[in-house]
């Protein structure tokens, strides 16, 4: 919840909200029903699948035991969460200023900037990766320019390092962050910022105390989307970074395409889903808790 809400919530209004608690979630029924039929049921099927092991004498939870008792898989699970976390932070740091600029300083060309923002997402991942391969190559333009500027003295081996994976991830995920933040930032009443400035607060102080808190829900939305998308993706890890970033979805892909052990793939998928849901729930709780306090 945000400050704007707190301000408008008179005791009477709160009381009227309370009365509505019982049917407050009625509107979610169609969506909940849809997901029960087309997400939960297939998932249950998938869970049964995860209990089947390749070995004839395998126990029902062997696939899960394999994941949780082997330090290699634990490492991969942690790395998966870490890559998603780091990408999310990078996207916030890079995306917030862009969203802020678009909402506060762009006058006539707003739609154009949105086009530019989403255009990269409308080409296929295969071609985007191809673009990066050209740009980041040892003798590619980036290395050349950096050498010409005297910033480096040897061509960079970016394509072989995890750096290129983050280039690829931030490239496709940052637009989601920017749009999420911008769509919320535009609802922030500028008079609050102006009042703060008039009353003598510095611009940094105004940003920290007014703008940032009021746009939190945009950052949260963007973070959820970026974190989850990153958590489930494997194509960027597959095609960039020379195989240096191995995450759970990539292992799932291997089980399908190379090993055909769908039971183990299903088990990894369930673990990934569970971890992501825990992160998501905690995030929502923290945000709500803060607002309601």
């Amino acid at each position: 919840m945000t400050m704007a809400d707190k301000i408008t919530l008179s005791p009477a209004a709160t009381a009227s909200r309370r009365r509505k608690t019982t049917h407050g979630l009625l509107g979610t029924l169609p969506a909940v029903f849809f997901l029960v039929v087309f997400f939960v049921l297939p998932l249950i099927d998938n869970t049964f699948n995860s209990l089947e092991t390749r070995a004839e004498d395998g126990g029902a939870i062997d696939n899960y035991m394999r994941l949780f008792t082997d330090s290699y898989y634990l490492e991969v699970i942690l790395r998966t969460l870490w890559v998603s976390f780091l990408s999310t932070v990078l996207c916030i740091v890079i995306g917030y200023p862009v969203a802020y600029y678009m909402v506060r300083h762009v006058k006539g060309s707003g739609a154009l900037l949105i086009f530019l923002l989403v255009a990269p997402l409308m080409t296929s991942i295969i071609m985007r990766t191809y673009g990066w391969q050209i740009l980041l190559a040892r003798n590619g333009p980036l290395s050349d320019w950096l050498m010409a500027l005297g910033l480096i003295d040897r061509p960079l081996g970016l394509l072989r390092s995890p750096v290129s994976v983050y280039f690829g991830l931030v490239h496709i995920l940052a637009p989601y962050m920017v749009i999420s933040i911008a769509s919320v930032l535009q609802t922030v009443d500028r008079r609050l910022e102006e009042a703060s400035l008039v009353m003598g607060a510095s611009r940094f102080e105004t940003f920290r105390r007014i703008t940032l808190p009021l746009s939190t829900s945009g950052i949260v939305t963007g973070s959820i989307i970026v974190f989850m998308l990153c958590n489930g993706s494997f194509l960027t890890m597959l095609l960039l970074g020379n195989g240096s970033v191995v995450t759970l979805p990539l292992l799932i892909y291997q089980q399908f395409v190379l090993v055909n052990d769908t039971g183990f793939a299903a088990a990894m998928g369930n673990v990934l889903l569970l971890l992501a849901l825990i992160c998501l729930y905690l995030q929502l709780r923290i945000v709500r808790g803060k607002g309601a306090a």
Binding site: R17, T21, G24, F39, M228, G232, L272, A276, L277, R288
Partner: peptide
């Protein structure tokens, strides 16, 4: 707008497909 204690749970549920690896 819901103040229901179930709101976070339902929100998490509706966002869940995001975290499922798509290939699976």
């Amino acid at each position: 707008r819901s103040r229901s204690p179930l709101a976070e749970a339902v929100t998490t549920f509706l966002l869940a497909p995001l975290s499922m690896p798509m290939i699976l």
